[in-house]
């Protein structure tokens, strides 16, 4: 069973239709007690405005920064976050889990 109202992708489409640049981030893999399930989305526009969540707040800041790069370059990127990773010092998952996030531009 899943909760209703998965509207991140509708927002992404609305932003794009309104002429804004958009990137979509998707959780593709999790280990341990990751806060958001595989398939969760976060959409970011060119100004850094975002909807949705990939980690319940732990690493959103880094995902948005990377997403703005992806909007600029157009090249998809795979991000990894977790306690075993160096980025944990900067933006780690407080729960001790690890996640991989795929970030792509909406063309």
């Amino acid at each position: 069973m899943r909760a209703s109202g998965d509207d991140v992708l509708l927002q992404a489409q609305a932003w794009k239709d309104a002429g804004r640049t958009v990137a979509v981030a998707t959780v593709v893999e999790t280990w341990g007690s990751a806060p958001r399930p595989v398939g969760s989305h976060l959409a970011v526009d060119g100004d850094g405005l975002f909807v949705g969540s990939v980690s319940g707040g732990c690493v959103e800041g880094d995902v948005i920064t990377e997403a703005l790069d992806v909007i600029g370059s157009g090249t998809p990127r795979m991000l990894e976050f977790g306690v075993a990773d160096e980025t944990a010092w900067r933006a780690g998952l407080s729960c001790g889990g690890r996640i991989r996030v795929y970030v792509e531009r909406l063309d």
Partner: peptide, 21 residues
Amino acid sequence: KSGLVERNGHSFFLTVHVPPV
């Protein structure tokens, strides 16, 4: 459920959308 599938050394991610019950 969304998830990864391996096929012939390639990784595919399947984003699965089913209607809310």
